[in-house]
């Protein structure tokens, strides 16, 4: 709707964006669903040792050249509590 009103997005841009996502999964052999499962496992494991907020955990695939990297950002609960006090 919006794109209809404000001019079509260039098709080359959609091609590039779509390819960026497709290539990440092709290269790692990891589907979005498997990435979610990995995330759940990771949260469960870490929670056994330290208090975290599952909703705040960010796990993403990043790339540098042809290298793929799994980047996890896991804020600790006790740390945030102290800071807000």
């Amino acid at each position: 709707m919006m794109s209809f009103l404000f001019g079509r997005k260039k098709s080359a841009n959609s091609a590039k964006e779509r390819l960026q996502l497709v290539l990440i999964h092709d290269r790692t052999d990891l589907t979005p669903a498997e990435l979610e499962a990995l995330k759940d496992d990771l949260i469960a494991t870490i929670s056994r040792h330290i208090d975290i907020d599952p909703m705040a955990v960010r796990i993403n695939m990043a790339q540098e050249g042809r290298e793929q990297r799994l980047v996890a950002d896991i804020p600790l609960k006790s740390a945030t509590r102290k800071r807000t006090r």
């Binding site: 098709s11 080359a12 841009n13 091609a15 590039k16 390819l19 960026q20 790339q63 042809r66």
Partner: peptide, 19 residues
């Protein structure tokens, strides 16, 4: 086509494939 935004440019392809 590249100029009018309807084809991936050389830079786009190089960004994606990184070789």
């Amino acid at each position: 086509m590249v100029k009018r935004g309807d084809m991936l440019s050389v830079e786009d392809v190089l960004d994606l494939l990184a070789i």
